[in-house]
């Protein structure tokens, strides 16, 4: 049975999350400085961990498009990328698209910070009109 799609509506301080496990299309967008990062990201980690036990054969595409995230969210995000990296090392096709506004050097640099050491996932830095 396919795992139920995980959707979390975005708020002023937490991102919109849409992990469609059936198609392998995942996305996270918006602001991220939730009151309690562990409480916000915990269910996302759990769902992803469960999914990665038997990922879809076509692989995973994750689109990330943040306006701002704080350091607690950064650690959580890295945790998600490391889970995907591990799965990619085991043979899952994983593509990550890191979208950043073309005038936002900080978010571009974050993309470089996060992609370092990721060897098995395809990581694309995608500039969008700011």
């Amino acid at each position: 049975m396919t795992q139920e799609r995980l959707t979390i509506a975005g708020t002023e301080r937490s991102p919109e999350v849409d992990f469609d496990f059936a198609s392998g299309r995942f996305s996270m967008r918006g602001e991220s400085y939730p009151e309690d990062a562990a409480a916000f990201f915990g269910p996302i980690f759990d769902a992803l961990r469960r999914y990665l036990q038997a990922p879809a054969p076509d692989g995973i595409t994750l689109d990330i498009e943040f306006i701002y995230f704080n350091s607690s969210s950064a650690k959580a995000l890295m945790n998600i990328l490391e889970m995907l990296e591990k799965s990619a090392a085991d043979g899952t096709r994983v593509e990550i698209n890191w979208h950043y506004a073309d005038d936002d050097d900080t978010m571009k640099e974050f993309g470089e910070d996060f992609s370092e050491d990721l060897e098995h996932v395809t990581f694309n830095l995608v500039s969008v009109d700011g």
């Binding site: 704080n70 350091s71 950064a74 650690k75 890295m78 910070d113 996060f114 050491d117």
Partner: peptide, 25 residues
């Protein structure tokens, strides 16, 4: 930058709740 990248990949120190990466940020 190197210190940030390293802290990003490390489990938080005991009792720090991630203070180090916040200070580097």
């Amino acid at each position: 930058k190197a210190h940030y990248r390293q802290q990003l990949r490390e489990a938080p120190e005991d009792g720090s709740k991630g203070a180090t990466i916040g200070l580097i940020e």
